[in-house]
Design a protein around this nucleic acid. Structure first.
Lengths: 232, 232
DNA sequence: ATTTAAATTAAACGAATGTTTAATTAATGC
DNA sequence: GCATTAATTAAACATTCGTTTAATTTAAAT
């Protein structure tokens, strides 16, 4: 849909040589990034081969090296291309309030991130793969730039939420961040298994219920209101 | 520590032939399972090579095929060996109450599982890798036997907890299960990154605080007690 | 119009992978 | 005590992997 085969059918089974269109170069780049995104979300970095990715993009494997240098370069470009927009949106959400008195947009961050995860199924999977990785082409960038912008900002947000009385005063901002991330990210990577084991189905209505549920879990938990859980 | 080199130093640099000890066979099996557990938790299935695993176990790569048939067999045996005990403990915890009136041991399950995850750092990682996998040597067993015994039992437990008033009546047991798993599993796979980004350190005291925190998050959430969060 | 540069392919390359084979040594059964 | 079987190694095998090269076709520049 994004790229149009300029002449004589598809891009498959071409003879070598520069193609006729003038926008082919960009189209190949985009197709490769999209194929890489899908396959790196599905399989691990090592398990997804360049031949497989090139085939999914209907492109010669050598194009990966022509456009991105090597497999690592493709992965890096893909992850920046995929995570970048979300990070920018997240940053905008968490930096908005000019005056410190303004209500911390915790609810909006939670719902916004979960909506994004629902719309782009590969996102949560790529992030968790990166969290799980002990090393890799993107590890340093992820730790230095991505993670601080995502989880790194949350403790401050939580502290402000505590000051404003939106969150209970005895909450540890760091542990609260861990729980926040857990509630927001994990459901989406568990969905394929939840479909088989818990019998859910990933409809729009379900996603809406999930977001409402997770919001309430974060603020109120699953227990009774009157907190008769004094025993421990 | 587990295997004793029977004679003349280590097992490295041996000549071919049957070793002298009579318990060597079992020792090799155990060493291979341990090495596989550590490396499959660290790297993905494809990324962890049999040569690397064999080297970590100080054993010839061919022993993997002698003892387990192939790489898949080693992975299956390792995961059964690793997940089996936890599943049995979990099953015991969730099936205990003979009479339906007995209090549902939700708190005990939560703390028990988290304690196990803290003690065996590879467990949560292996599980999440399996959750993330779209296919693999263990996928069917995981979906048919492991997942139902873990997450599959929780909805029933939550329903009973609702009947007993331990959990609020309007909680969806399925969504509650997703949140429960999220709060229990995700923090442990995020620890390595949390150490760098949030500055935490994985001490015994921290684990204790984490478990208390997660329990409270599950029952009470992070919001204020009086639930002034009427706005939405 | 001709030359030069860009974009692409097919084919080959070396390294690494999972696996098999043949040789070798010790334990076991008779 | 001898033959057989079990447990182990080193080496080779076929395949797949990421990458490079050379050829080829078109676009762009002069």
């Amino acid at each position: 849909m994004s790229r149009t085969a300029k002449k004589s059918g598809t891009r498959a089974r071409r003879r070598p040589g520069r193609p006729e269109g003038t926008a082919h170069r960009e189209a190949v780049r985009v197709d490769l990034l999209r194929a890489a995104r899908e396959l790196f979300a599905k399989r691990d970095f090592t398990a997804a081969s360049v031949r497989e990715i090139a085939a999914a993009a209907r492109v010669n494997p050598a194009m990966i090296h022509y456009h991105f240098g090597d497999k690592d370069g493709l992965y890096r470009a893909m992850l920046e291309d995929t995570l970048g927009p979300m990070m920018r949106r997240l940053q905008a959400l968490t930096e908005e309030p000019g005056n410190a008195r303004e209500a911390v947009p915790l609810r909006e961050v939670l719902a916004g991130v979960m909506t994004t995860f629902a719309r782009e199924p590969w996102l949560a999977r790529l992030i968790v793969r990166e969290v799980l990785a002990e090393a890799g082409p993107f590890r340093e960038t992820f730790i230095r730039e991505i993670a601080p912008r995502a989880g790194g900002r949350l403790p401050k947000l939580l502290r402000r939420a505590i000051e404003q009385g939106q969150v209970r005063a005895d909450l540890d901002p760091t542990l609260g961040t861990l729980s926040f991330m857990s509630l927001v990210v994990f459901p989406f990577i568990a969905l394929p298994i939840a479909e088989k084991v818990l019998g859910i189905r990933m409809t729009d209505a379900f996603v809406e219920r999930l977001i409402d549920h997770s919001t309430r879990m974060f603020y109120e938990g699953a227990g009774q209101k009157q907190s008769r859980n004094a025993s421990r």
